[in-house]
């Protein structure tokens, strides 16, 4: 078990390193292969008509004159120890974790991302609670009464949920509840610590639109998993013991049926923590996804790199947690 945790953690770290190398390569190696000079690259940091001194200072500060692998090493290093840019007129420090400076507004990337984390986290976690509760419950009830009215209608709704994109459901909800009936006016993110009620009312529409898609998916997954589990031999054994049906379902059926769902949940949550791009756009929530979109629009390389790294980090982290949880749930993983 100890080795298992260690090995998984190690694998996660390696994965992160690979992801960062690949992203770094895409942003810094490919342009160079395409013939872009370091001058052109450095010029992006300064704006139009750069002076040769300023160019030289940027190149020296950001190490563009060094070989690429050293640049990558610096990129990794500065995440953990920060960096100082001591050349040029205005020397500055980039604090840990340092993801460099923005091309456009010359401020550090990390504090900007950091300020958006609560928005995305609130959105993703809230929606996750909602979709887990509704999706799994619907799935279980459907599986226990296959082909019943509830099963057929909920699976119909689920099919719709899977097929409708968020920018459709989200936009409809947004229109209905904040323009037509004005239940939630002027949606914007409010910090939980500042105003818990405002936090909740402002997030409820994004949560619902995000959760609708996922709960539909989870309802179908749970139903399929549950149907399979309930036909297992050990369910028959549990019934043969004389257990009441509720215990058979919950203790013997659900626990086994939920394990594969856990894996998918880890992946989905990790993805969302890296930015719920569409939902944030639809509801103008200033989360990581929103930030990423604007960074791409601006072609702001350091921001894109930073946000990619953060998103990758959350996905890897969530998957690591799922792996460990899996071992906790399934003794065959733990003890093999």
């Amino acid at each position: 078990m100890f080795f298992y945790i260690l090995r998984r953690t190690f694998a996660a770290l390696v994965l992160l390193l690979v992801v960062s190398a690949v992203t770094f390569g895409i942003f810094f190696l490919l342009p160079r292969l395409a013939g872009e000079t370091t001058d052109q690259l450095a010029a992006q940091y300064i704006g139009k008509n750069p002076s040769p001194e300023a160019l030289a200072a940027v190149k020296k500060n950001l190490g563009f004159d060094q070989p690429l692998y050293e640049q990558f090493w610096h990129f990794i290093k500065q995440i953990f120890v920060g960096a100082t840019y001591k050349y040029g007129p205005d020397a500055s420090t980039c604090h840990v974790p340092c993801f460099g400076y923005s091309f456009k507004n010359h401020i550090e990337v990390w504090p900007e991302i950091e300020s958006r984390i609560p928005v995305t986290f609130s959105l993703a976690l809230g929606a996750a609670v909602l979709w887990l509760l509704s999706g799994v419950t619907t799935g279980v009830i459907s599986a226990l009464r296959p082909k019943s009215f509830f099963d057929r209608s909920s699976m119909g709704v689920a099919l719709a949920g899977v097929s409708l994109p968020i920018f459709f459901t989200g936009a409809i909800l947004h229109y209905l509840f904040s323009y037509k009936w004005v239940v939630f006016d002027n949606l914007h993110y409010v910090n939980f610590t500042d105003d818990p009620v405002g936090w909740f009312t402002n997030l409820i529409l994004p949560w619902i639109s995000l959760a609708f898609l996922y709960s539909a998916l989870y309802a179908r997954l749970t139903r399929a998993g549950m149907l399979e589990t309930m036909s297992e031999d050990y369910i028959r054994t549990a019934r043969a013991k004389g257990l009441i049906e509720r215990k058979v379902v919950v203790r013997h059926g659900l626990r086994a049926a939920l394990t594969p769902i856990l894996t998918i949940f880890g992946m989905d949550l990790g993805l969302l923590l890296g930015g719920a791009v569409i939902t944030e756009q639809v509801f103008s929530m200033q989360g990581i996804g929103f930030f990423a979109v604007s960074a791409i629009k601006d072609n702001d390389l350091p921001k894109i790199l930073g946000v990619t790294m953060i998103a990758a980090f959350f996905i890897v982290l969530c998957n690591l947690l799922v792996d460990l949880l899996y071992a906790a749930v399934d003794p065959r993983v733990r003890l093999s």
Binding site: E232, D233, Y234, R236, T237, A238, H252, R255, A256, V329, D330, P331, R332
Partner: peptide, 12 residues
């Protein structure tokens, strides 16, 4: 008691 004791007991 059932035929296959591996599948007849809950693995968890």
């Amino acid at each position: 008691i059932f035929q296959d004791p591996l599948t007849a007991m809950h693995p968890y």
